[in-house]
Computed example of a mutant assay.
Amino acid sequence: MSTTETTTSTREFIIVGQVCAGSYRLWDVAPAPADPGKRAIALEEIGVDVMDAFGSVHTEYASTAREAVDQLLATLRDRYGDDGFALADNSNLDAYNADEPPAEQTDPYGKATTTAATRDSRYEITASVVSGTPRFNLEGLPVRSLGANWARDRVRAGICNSGLDWPMVNVLVQATADICEDNVTSIGASGLDLAIAVTVLAAAGQVPAECLDGAALVAELGLDGRLRTPYGLPSTVRRLTEGGTTTVIVPDAAVADLKHTRARIIGASSLNEVVAMLSGHWHHQNCAHCDQGVTAPHRPPTARALRDKDQVDGQI
């Protein structure tokens, strides 16, 4: 009888997180699918994304999510010989303290859009975050670029290594150029990294989506979350201003080279600094294009709208 009760009261939990210095940062914990096939697929797909983000996946049999995590922590204490090994302060404590898994998916979901550019084209970057198997799909990058995989790795690592939470759900980012795809080269394509990262965070609810209004974002994202200057940035900023952009956020190191552009140039050193700037609407303060000087959105026409307009004008 006791064996039956133990079997029916426990289940397998999938635990996702990252081992830090002397602690474990819990990202999420949830029951594994009961179906063996679905379990295998879930573990494989979660494993790929989590490993790319420098995390790890574990499974434990337990009665609750908290018990499963405690069992994992005990295993890690034995492995590292550290009796003080515990959860990191920035762990997902909501998942840890949940007695039962939620009846419905409660992962953050939403949509956000911002503006970016390469030397050849302005881009509308749109991120959608929806419930489902954790994935990161990136579409619309220049066809002759080195590929979406490098951008995905930079963005995901930059977010995680900045101490921000990567949404463990289905993430889709669409980059829409304002000119025909055949005319777009890969020059400066890494400058889309910052816009991609910020729209993902905004779609996941970590940054207010409305704070993206009024500024274009152009910077390559380092694996440590620092901002790097992409190739051809002066030409990129000129293309943005020609399209109506009035404020551009770029790496600190590039500000001096852009002082003669018509746009208001704001420098930042890291992804965290950009997130703080956007969340506090600093990019609107003392803005000559805003009547009140703060929080007044002045987003230029989108890349899609400009491209459609050019196509119509070409037919006249």
Rank of each mutant, 00 (worst) to 15 (best):
R11T: 15
T247I: 11
G17W: 11
L87M: 10
A177W: 04
T75W: 03
S63L: 07
A268H: 06
D52H: 10
L258Q: 04
R152P: 01
Q292D: 13
R11F: 08
P101N: 11
G158E: 04
Q315W: 08
L164I: 07
H284R: 04
A288Q: 09
I15Y: 05
S9W: 07
D291L: 11
I265F: 06
T106A: 09
L217N: 01
A253I: 01
A197L: 06
P208Q: 10
T229H: 06
Y61P: 03
T247K: 07
E44P: 00
V57P: 09
W27P: 02
H281Q: 12
P234V: 01
V143E: 12
Q285R: 13
S279P: 02
T6H: 12
G17C: 07
V237L: 06
A216S: 14
D308Y: 03
D193Y: 00
P230T: 01
G225H: 03
R66F: 05
P31H: 12
A175Y: 04
L306T: 02
G188F: 01
H260E: 11
H58N: 06
G214W: 08
S190A: 15
D99Q: 14
N90W: 10
V200P: 09
Y80G: 05
D310Q: 15
A65C: 13
V237I: 10
L221K: 00
V57Q: 05
G37N: 13
M277W: 00
S128H: 10
G222M: 03
R11Q: 15
Q18I: 05
N92T: 04
E210Y: 13
M51P: 00
V29E: 09
T245N: 02
H281A: 11
V19A: 11
E44D: 13
V275Q: 07
Y61L: 11
T113G: 02
D165C: 03
D89H: 06
N149Y: 10
Q315F: 07
V169D: 10
Q206V: 00
H281Y: 15
L192H: 03
E124W: 00
P101Y: 12
T10D: 01
